[in-house]
Amino acid sequence: MTPILQIEQVSKRFGGLLALDKVTLNVNAGEIFGIIGPNGAGKTTLFNVINGVYAPTLGRITFRGENVTGLQPYDLSKRGLARTYQVVRPLAELTVHENVTVGACFGRENLPLEKAETVADEVLQFVGLTARRDMLAGKLNVAQKKRLEMARALAARPIMLLLDEVLAGLNPQEVADMLGVVRKIRENGVTIIMIEHLMHAVMNLSDRVFVLDYGAQIAEGTPQQVSSHPKVIEAYLGDPKIAQRFLEGTG
């Protein structure tokens, strides 16, 4: 089976900084693919390159058999790629419902407004934000904003979803709720790539895990394979707290 997303030898340079160094990875349709790595490893840059915010300096990206290297974010959105931001970016002066309608309107199905409004209501139901439908998005709390990010991305009816630390800043109950939502999304057939710092979450959810450090791949495989990989331990031992969590998550 050909992978749904192929990243071949992708590098991204910012001036003197090599943020991504010849990254190669394949993501299969229907899987949850976890990306981990210490702070500053280049995880978010990788997302930005995948969804077209930055064009890669070198390398090639293929999505569903089509070369999408250097396409704009809106082109990729139309092709079925959606993402959430690590630092939430609600359209603050629009209502929750309008935010999600934007996703549905301009996403893969390019729906007309009325159809998009219906889809938005369905998605709000799915993520459990129906009660906040007519609130201004800027007035939501953090957990709700994270759900909104998710809802907006889902309303585009994506084929692949990039989740950038959707669990960060949530309390344990909110984390559990969000994990439920992520599982449900996968059950609907959406391929998911997630960047996550919460090790137990990423290790439990992911089919495969990819580890980045200083912009380069240091390991890839099942959660078990990765967590016993010496280079991964070494990378994380630089930060004992994370190493501890790391071991707890898989132990």
């Binding site: 970016r89 359209l91 309008e98 893969r108």
Partner: peptide, 20 residues
């Protein structure tokens, strides 16, 4: 108009949501 207001609120986020 909805697309315009998305641009007004956050142009980069709007792009990622599929708006040119």
């Amino acid at each position: 108009g909805l697309g315009l207001m998305a641009i007004r609120e956050d142009q980069d986020a709007a792009q990622v949501l599929g708006i040119d």
